[in-house]
């Protein structure tokens, strides 16, 4: 916390603790949906080198929490700080560090894997050549499927294409909503290896999953309550 004030001085101030360059902090986060508290007074911190695993039963608010943490949803109470400043104010800076992969694959069925990835890289403002995209696809075990329309591929293969963004788009904060769904055993291993190496290089990950997670780095867990509370304030 003490270094945060230093950062306020401006972008050119050198940063003593690189960990905090990915510092996302939630204070007393609470979210209400349809008269029910999904969670209340949630405090959490994410920084470089962290894996935070969000658990909970269906409907416990995992996706909602991820949408709030990724600055998509504004329907919450409490404070979110990115590098010590209110997230709403530094949204663009935050987004330029974030890679979010949600339930939906964000792939166009009519386009090939390469064309889909080209769009994702461009949207991130990042130049990408065919070689890089091919490398990303082969890392996910998709060599040979690069030019087929994505709509012709299986759900697991589509999920792999979506995950190829983890290799292609260079962002340090990953938020992954059920990234393991539809993956086979081999795919799970590839993703786990990606997660481990990302965190070892100082990146951070927030993910939701029901799957047992085998990574070589410590994982922090956050369990959201099964039952919401009635609103009584």
């Amino acid at each position: 916390m003490r270094t945060i004030c230093v950062y306020r001085a401006g972008p050119d101030v050198s940063f003593p603790e690189p960990d905090l360059s990915l510092h996302l902090q939630a204070r007393k986060l609470a979210c209400e949906r349809d008269g029910r508290w999904l969670f209340g007074a949630l405090d959490l911190e994410i920084q470089g080198g962290d894996i935070l695993r969000v658990e909970g039963a269906n409907g416990s608010g995992k996706t909602t929490l991820l949408k709030i943490l990724s600055a998509q949803s504004l329907d919450y109470q409490g404070t979110l700080l990115w590098r010590g400043e209110p997230l709403r104010r530094v949204r663009r800076d935050f987004l330029s560090h974030l890679l979010y992969i949600g339930h939906a694959s964000a792939l166009k069925p009519a386009l090939s894997a390469l064309e889909n990835l080209a769009w994702h890289a461009a949207l991130a403002g990042q130049p990408s050549g065919d070689a890089e995209r091919l490398a990303a696809l082969s890392r996910l075990g998709l060599s040979g499927f690069e030019d087929l329309p994505v709509g012709q591929l299986s759900a697991g293969q589509q999920r792999r294409i979506a995950l190829a963004r983890l290799v292609l788009v260079r962002r340090r904060l990953w938020m992954l909503d059920e990234p393991f769904s539809a993956l086979d055993r081999d795919g799970i291993q590839v993703l786990e290896a990606l997660l481990s190496s990302h965190v070892r290089q100082g990146g951070s990950v927030v993910l939701t999953t029901h799957q047992p997670l085998h990574v070589e780095v410590p994982v922090r867990r956050l369990r959201l309550g099964e039952e919401g509370m009635d609103v009584t304030t």
């Binding site: 972008p11 530094v90 663009r92 800076d93 330029s96 560090h97 166009k108 009519a110 386009l111 064309e115 080209a118 769009w119 890289a121 461009a122 949207l123 991130a124 403002g125 990042q126 130049p127 260079r170 962002r171």
Partner: peptide, 25 residues
């Protein structure tokens, strides 16, 4: 200039990528 100089996202590139994809579709 973005705050995060290393990432250097360029809106023009995103715009081109977006329009290219829409044309492809």
């Amino acid at each position: 200039p973005e705050r995060d100089g290393a990432a250097g996202p360029t809106p023009a590139r995103a715009l081109r990528g977006m329009m290219r994809r829409d044309l492809l579709l």
